[in-house]
């Protein structure tokens, strides 16, 4: 196959974006929205997982000690618990630390009363397990330890959080699939319009013996350039929007989010690659049917 006319074809493809600029701008707009929404869905999933990890680790169980246990005794009990098989580590949570968790939710005067001597919270130890499959045995051993009063059953919470995580993941996958399809549809529609506006040239090209590939290249280039532009703009917008949303969310909920620096490069890369691929696919989809037509049929005469 000869590619001596490639420069010409690329020029034609890019020219066409300008000639049909209203449609091009419209499809770039839609594509940017789709990319951003897809990115948002994926980033939400990433952040939910990360938040869940930070909440607590789904395999951390808080163990409450008897009221009379002092800080020093509590540390000893912590060491003892750490020796139980399947316990990865223990962290001592003093009653003073425990009450601080409620500082924001309680009225100031009430909170004052509850600190120091009036603190109703017992000392506690956060026990991290290696494998939740042995939860029952491990917890039994923990409860049998001298000075341990009770343990908060976190399995239910853990399960719920895992379910939530899975749900967000699945939903964002479907949303992404739908948006990608919509994008391909939009691009193929745009390309079909520009093909329609250039059907006269196409009929001449075919009558002098242009190959299908040759007729196709400018349109594929057009689709890919539209995709590239969309990908680049979407990446820029993401950089701005992500930080804005993150800062707002930080003020609302005290969770740890994934910083832009960690996801930005990958997301931008994904946007550009996805944009170009969607552009190419969308145009290939729309051209096939058109190329089978000949002469007057192609021209609609």
């Amino acid at each position: 196959m000869k590619f001596s006319g490639l420069g010409y074809l690329i020029k034609e493809g890019i020219k066409s974006i300008w000639t049909n600029r209203m449609m091009s701008i419209a499809s770039i707009g839609v594509l940017i929205s789709c990319l951003l929404l897809t990115g948002a869905a994926e980033l939400l999933t990433i952040n939910v997982s990360s938040a869940l990890e930070s909440i607590g680790g789904t395999n951390v169980t808080r163990v409450f000690l008897e009221q009379h246990i002092t800080d020093l005794e509590a540390v000893h009990i912590g060491d003892e618990l750490a020796r139980i098989p399947n316990v990865e580590k223990t962290v001592f949570i003093s009653k003073d630390d425990a009450i601080k968790d409620y500082q924001d939710t309680l009225r100031e005067d009430i909170f004052e009363q509850l600190t120091g001597e009036g603190n109703p919270m017992p000392n506690a130890i956060d026990v991290t397990m290696t494998d939740l499959a042995y939860y029952d045995d491990t917890i039994a051993a923990v409860l049998a330890t001298e000075g341990v009063e009770s343990a908060r059953d976190t399995r239910e919470i853990a399960q719920k959080l895992t379910m939530l995580n899975d749900l967000v993941g699945t939903m964002s996958l479907w949303i992404m699939a739908a948006l990608v399809l919509i994008s391909i549809f939009i691009i193929s529609n745009t390309i079909r319009m520009t093909m329609y506006s250039r059907r006269f040239e196409i009929s001449i090209m075919k009558s002098v013996g242009a190959t299908d590939t040759f007729v196709r290249i400018p349109f594929v280039i057009e689709g890919m350039v539209i995709g590239l532009i969309s990908g680049v703009i979407a990446s820029g917008l993401l950089a701005v929007l992500y930080n804005v949303v993150l800062n707002t969310m930080k003020d609302i909920v005290a969770l740890s989010f994934v910083p832009y620096s960690q996801v930005g490069l990958w997301a931008s890369l994904a946007f550009v690659v996805a944009g170009v691929a969607i552009g190419a696919l969308g145009s290939v989809v729309s051209i096939g049917r058109y190329l089978r037509k000949e002469g007057n049929e192609l021209l609609g005469w």
């Binding site: 001596s4 006319g5 010409y8 006269f200 001449i204 009558s207 013996g209």
Partner: peptide, 30 residues
């Protein structure tokens, strides 16, 4: 080479480009 009753020339191209178009369409060198 096909010649049409209604000429089928591309209005927005010059005479030169109309003729060159047939060569470009089959990948001729500039």
């Amino acid at each position: 080479g096909i010649v049409f009753q209604d000429f089928r020339l591309i209005d927005k191209m010059t005479v030169y480009d109309n003729v060159a178009f047939a060569m470009r369409a089959i990948g001729a060198r500039p």
